[in-house]
Design a protein around this nucleic acid. Sequence first.
DNA 1: ATCGTTGCAAACGGTTTGCAATTCG
DNA 2: CGAATTGCAAACCGTTTGCAACGAT
Lengths: 161, 161
Amino acid sequence: MSELSYFPGSTNREDYAKKIAAVFSEYLEKNGLRLTSPRRKILDCLLKADRHLNQEEIYQSLRPQGIGRATVFRTIKMLEDSNLLSRIAGISGPPRFEVHSERPHHDHLVCISCGSIQEIQWPELERIQEKACGKIGFEIKWHRHEIFGFCKKCAGSSKQA
Amino acid sequence: MSELSYFPGSTNREDYAKKIAAVFSEYLEKNGLRLTSPRRKILDCLLKADRHLNQEEIYQSLRPQGIGRATVFRTIKMLEDSNLLSRIAGISGPPRFEVHSERPHHDHLVCISCGSIQEIQWPELERIQEKACGKIGFEIKWHRHEIFGFCKKCAGSSKQA
DNA sequence: ATCGTTGCAAACGGTTTGCAATTCG
DNA sequence: CGAATTGCAAACCGTTTGCAACGAT
């Protein structure tokens, strides 16, 4: 399970976290909602993680602080609505989540043998996408691109799922 | 809801259906399983449809013939295992399915306003993908590429979800 | 006769919702 | 005070499974 997570050169993790929190807060305000302590903690948990968490993992790590499952789900939904969080499907099991926004867009390479998720950036591919969609009048909001196969390690060995 | 579905020039729908059925049958045989009437009907239902069906739609259309939900799920799983069926996630709700195999690969443009799904082919994009993955030693088995945004019709009008 | 297959109903697991208590502004 | 928020438990919904009856070789 090697899952990468990185932050653009000029922005360190804390600045990044602040920025995201600000965007979230703004979103909430605009909708007459509040940036409460549980919501903040859930966002922090996602930001601190160096891999893609699923709902259960967030819940387990925050339960000691008295945060319930429902709140985790509700907050995840808000973060998705505010376009700060994206859902990654994987091959099976519950979806995992990833804070995006400021990070350069990347796609996912999911290994169907060991389950690892690598990230990959494709500026070239993004360009082609936009050009083609522009031509047929489709206005892109976001996309999800998951490639399934065998990672380097697993491709070398026996390839069992 | 305009969902395209087409068959390559030289192959008409019936030939195509036969080919798929043959592949399925072969897969079943190889695994000591049988191409039974319910399985055949479920495959036919998917082949006949001119849009992406979900499990419930298949079940509803076959229920009059006495086919149960469990069989639909079980058969879908087999078709996925035999690499004849792929799962499309959409923005919400249950996954939809699409028979692929012989058809040229294509990605999906999902409209977040009206829910329509357009298909788009990107040979260029596929090439880039393979080249890049080859470079880092990732062996592609299949991929899922869904682009979300506003279709031509909805981009023009008021853009409500 | 044997072994896969079927439909049913119950079980399951992730997600959502109703609600009374609580917190925040 | 009033409105949003919370945790809990129950409800929900799509999916899976156990099982006894069935079907095909």
